[in-house]
Design a binder for these strands. Structure first.
Lengths: 340, 340
DNA sequence: TCTCGGCATGTGCACGGTCACACCCGACCG
DNA sequence: CGGTCGGGTGTGACCGTGCACATGCCGAGA
């Protein structure tokens, strides 16, 4: 009907809607919030006017008065990697369904200042929950320092339980991988671990060591890597100068890929001369040469559960929560019995 | 000094700061906004009180009154892939430096409803700019339909220039890849393209066809894939039943990986029997077997430039803008002269 | 000496929602 | 038949910030 409603150029507000629908602004607000006590025809009239004006609620105004931002923060290191990226995507999807927004801050995990920057950036936004996919010890210290008073979930097992943890059971996964190698008959097994300050790297290393000692297999000290294929390659070249092993358990698929590259460069056969097992099961792992035996983590499920945990209860006094998702051993062509 | 300031439980506001500093709230606001006309000692007094109270500006209130959200939206398909993920990370970093927040919506590119959902989600937030990393034609139609009136940038070349485009020059990259194969002596070259509705897939296909005809090499119809290594693998098996080619140009590295898997499964040598070239240069490509010849795109630079473009000028009437970043041919071991 | 302009600061309102409360009215109950 | 209850609706304040405007002061120029 009427064409000139709100002051030219400004988006329509609930008061504009109210005026055209012949009700008070409060009634419009009630329609917006699905208040039960509204006569159906009143509600319909308001909805019609909203559609006519293309009314859209103003998020800032709502956030201001309710002091709720409906935003979840994600602090992530290495968000370009398959695992974190999958989890972030799942978090975003789950949050959106619940009517929440997601704001991400990518940090350089090696830089302490970057952690603080990222957290401050998220905090400035008034996030209602925080997912940490950069499970380094320093992050939790920084959260405390900045007195960020928001429920948070950390993705990946910590060992030292800070806050709530939701994770694939890294230790169990690492033990599965290690046991697989031992059961194939390997006795000289190396472990190429992730960066020392990554909690999940440490958990995998722990799983490796636990299983080795449980099976009474002598252990050599793990090598600390940086998750990249490049590192795997160079570490592989280094190791092959000695060649006192028949299998390597890499802490992720990328490093496993680099290792395989180095092994083949040396003219050795996989798995004939060296068995290699990875961790994560990135989509490409099935097409590596040979196809990589690895431990699958359901990153998307992890992301979904994070959101559920964060939004499910907002009681800050709730007991600490730790949940794990079972990993799965995926046996492909890169592992086999050792040849003697 | 004083310990009881704001009503218990509420975060301190500029008025709380003002009261303790003995100034008006407006003066505090001026300090916040770096207004020039403030006496240094007044400013310092205000800053001291802010620090004392741990005052943090309320984003919602500011957004409400300025009607500026300082948020950039990113609409992304396949954000779990290396390229998009790298760009998103770079966008976030650049935006943060500029004092902006980034909100991401991941869409399922095959689902039309999902595009609208994602866009609506971003729009509901009052984004000030939009980066589209899901360069499908439908996205732009949907932007128009929802009458989202926000400057946007598209990442990847479109051919039909909608909005502003910032991209690696896909056509040039595809021509480089194709020329490389032709120069090696290949005459029977297949192209494994990306999904038909992906603008960048189409650009690469176009580059392939252009170069082939420019060099007078007869062309076979490209195969339309879905970017995944799995598809590459199955397409490769299919192609090998005929085997009337000596080289394949895959539209991304994942499909190239799948192809190599299939070729090796058939007992053929790379590049002896078949040369394979990819596109993107994911970090793992150097460690594929053989290391993959491919075309490098600087995804991070792309992300940074997107933000610069979006924030640099906010004049909606500015002329259309198209910029390209030169791709780079990375020659590794997966391509060589054909054997006859 | 008066006016004018610019600096430094204060006053009050607006932004677009939600919340607490008031109000009206009809139904039900003792 | 009066009082209570609850559904449906309206009124006004308030959230924390920025903006327009007003004010007081001081120095320069007429």
């Amino acid at each position: 009907m009427s064409e000139q409603q709100a002051p030219r150029g400004r988006a329509p507000s609930i008061r504009d809607v109210a005026r055209l629908a012949g009700v008070s602004h409060q009634t419009v607000s009630r329609v917006l919030n699905h208040h039960p006590s509204i006569r159906p025809e009143t509600k319909q009239r308001v909805l019609d006017v909203m559609a006519e004006l293309q009314y859209k609620p103003n998020r800032a105004a709502r956030a201001l008065v309710t002091s709720r931002s409906r935003t979840i923060g994600v602090l992530s290191a290495s968000s370009t990697q398959y695992g974190p990226a999958s989890s972030i995507a799942a978090i975003e999807a789950a949050a959106r369904v619940a009517g929440y927004w997601v704001s991400t801050a990518n940090i350089d995990s090696s830089d302490a200042g970057s952690i603080a920057d990222g957290l401050a950036h998220l905090a400035a936004q008034g996030i209602e929950g925080l997912v940490v996919i950069a499970p380094q010890v320093r992050v939790f210290e920084t959260i405390a320092e900045l007195s960020i008073d928001v429920p948070y979930v950390t993705m990946q097992s910590t060992g030292q339980e800070v806050g709530r943890t939701l994770s694939v059971d890294q230790i169990a996964g690492a033990r599965m991988a290690t046991r697989h190698l031992i059961e194939l008959g390997h006795r000289n097994i190396y472990h190429l671990a992730g960066p020392q300050d990554w909690i999940e790297a440490e958990a995998r290393m722990r799983g490796f060591l636990e299983e080795m000692s449980a099976q009474d297999v002598p252990t050599t000290a793990p090598i600390l890597g940086d998750w990249t294929a490049n590192f795997g390659y160079h570490a592989g070249r280094e190791l092959l100068t000695v060649r006192d092993f028949t299998a390597i358990f890499a802490s992720n698929d990328q490093m496993a890929l680099g290792l395989m590259h180095a092994v083949r460069d040396a003219g050795l056969d996989i798995p004939g001369d060296v068995s290699i097992i990875g961790f994560d099961d990135v989509p490409e792992a099935a097409h590596f040469w040979p196809p990589l035996t690895t431990v699958r983590q359901d990153f998307a499920e992890l992301g979904r559960r994070c959101v559920a945990l964060l939004l499910g209860d907002r009681d800050p006094s709730a007991p600490e929560y730790v949940a794990t998702i079972a990993p799965e051993l995926i046996i492909r062509g890169s592992t086999g019995a050792p040849s003697f």
